[in-house]
Amino acid sequence: MMEPGLYHLLFISTALFFIGVFGFFTRRNLVTMLMSVELILNSVNLNFIAFNKYLWYDKMDGLFFTIFIIAIAAAEAAVAIAIIINLYRSHQSIDVENTEDMKY
């Protein structure tokens, strides 16, 4: 076991990203798909923080990107859940196949 460093954090964030991608591909329920998207966004945040900590510690830009991503993720989750609840009201289910009806 080595001293944890940049590569360890990048490994965690890569693994987290692809776990999220796997969940996004396999899940058919809109709420669980939203959870997978949250995992992907968190892996990106971890990446920004890792680079800021270990490579460009003289600036705080990665930190600000993380703050803005968190704010936008919160807005995105709120809008997505409003859409999901609206869909449930009209279809009594939140399966992703039903969202095709939203086109018309």
């Binding site: 945040n45 930190l63 993380t66 703050i67 968190i70 999901i84 609840i85």
Partner: peptide, 24 residues
């Protein structure tokens, strides 16, 4: 950042997700 993560994600988004699970 850790505090923001806990406040927004753990305290906000997960609670929102749990509520939407209850509703749907």
């Amino acid at each position: 950042i850790a505090a923001v993560q806990i406040v927004v994600y753990v305290g906000g988004i997960v609670v929102l997700i749990i509520f939407s699970i209850f509703l749907t």
